[in-house]
Write a protein that binds this DNA or RNA. Structure first.
Length: 312
DNA sequence: TACGCGTGGGA
DNA sequence: TTCCCAAGCGT
């Protein structure tokens, strides 16, 4: 685990004279704030299983909490265990995913369930390396399940934590597009050593980022650690790399067309012909065919030359 | 490493 | 209206 790696002295010009971050005050105030302001999300309930937590983390990848709550509840009622999801028809899995977006996640979640059945006897593994090896589980999700499902120490670094810690300790408005070693080192140094407190710390920082230290309009007046914030102390400097973070184009993309094709197939009661799908694509024929073929290549759609259905 | 991958709501 | 963003991952 990362925490067992020796941390070399920071190669700054004056490490010894740099005042340490008031770690104890930061921890105490943030944990108290979390106890008061934490949201009662269903996957945080005492009754939630590790599998439920894992499903929530996959659904929450790039998708807001408010849109996940409903589908998560229905999903867990229908497929309460990895084995039940692994045995489900893929088209039903994709329909249950609904409009959460990025439907490849649904496919990978089912593959993940199958891997848990095959490799771990149907039990969500506790070792972070075993979690990381599962389909659809990356470094964030492996750490999150370790912390939130198993209550063990992990360094959880999602977009919320990166933004909060970046502001608090580095004084930057927004994190860079890619996680840096320095960020990971700083985050690790702030995670408490014991399992129970570290899990609470991780979720508390995430919650602060979601509710107070938001990307667009941070509510600094409500922040319990504003007097410790380097970004605030520096006068809220603007994001230096705002120009570089160009927004992805959307209108007219294959992604948009794929979304329309998937929506049509989700809503259809039977197979759709290639002609029908080209018609709903709302694009040129070439893009429609290319998008449909890519959905087939991804395993989200199957069919012969004539007609197409969701899943395998 | 940079890019492709859905969807919908708020500023 | 347009743009930005929301608990990333795989290639």
């Amino acid at each position: 685990m990362m925490s067992t790696d020796p941390v070399p002295p920071a190669p700054t010009t004056a490490p010894a004279s740099t005042p340490p971050h008031p770690r104890a005050a930061l921890h105490a105030r943030l944990l108290v704030w979390f106890d008061v302001h934490r949201r009662d999300l269903p996957w945080r309930a005492a009754t939630a299983t590790p599998w439920g937590v894992l499903v929530s983390e996959i659904m929450l990848q790039q998708t807001p909490v408010v849109r996940v709550e409903g589908p998560w509840t229905a999903w867990l009622e229908r497929w309460p265990t990895p084995a039940s999801l692994a045995a489900a028809p893929t088209d039903e899995v994709l329909r249950a995913w609904g409009r959460l977006g990025y439907p490849r996640r649904a496919l990978r979640l089912q593959q993940c369930a199958a891997a848990i059945v095959e490799r771990h006897d149907g039990v969500v593994p506790t070792a972070e390396a075993d979690l990381l090896a599962l389909p659809g589980v990356g470094s964030y999700t492996a750490a999150a399940v370790t912390a939130f499902a198993h209550g063990r120490r992990a360094v959880v670094l999602d977009t919320n934590v990166r933004r909060v810690l970046g502001r608090l300790t580095a004084g930057t408005a927004l994190p860079r597009p890619h996680l840096t070693q320095e960020e990971t080192r700083r985050a690790d140094a702030l995670v408490p050593g014991d399992d129970a407190t570290s899990a609470r710390w991780n979720i508390a920082v995430m919650e602060l980022g979601a509710l107070v230290c938001t990307a667009r309009s941070p509510r600094c007046d409500d922040c319990p650690v504003r007097d410790l914030c380097a970004w605030r102390a520096a006068g809220y400097p603007a994001d230096e790399h705002a120009a570089a973070r160009r927004t992805q184009a959307w209108h007219g993309t294959d992604r948009q067309v794929r979304g329309r094709l998937m929506a049509a197939l989700r809503d259809a009661t039977g197979p759709l012909t290639r002609e029908e799908l080209v018609a709903v694509a709302g694009s040129g024929d070439e893009q429609a065919h290319r998008s449909l073929d890519s959905l087939v290549a991804d395993g989200l759609v199957s069919g012969d030359a004539e007609s197409f259905v969701l899943g395998r």
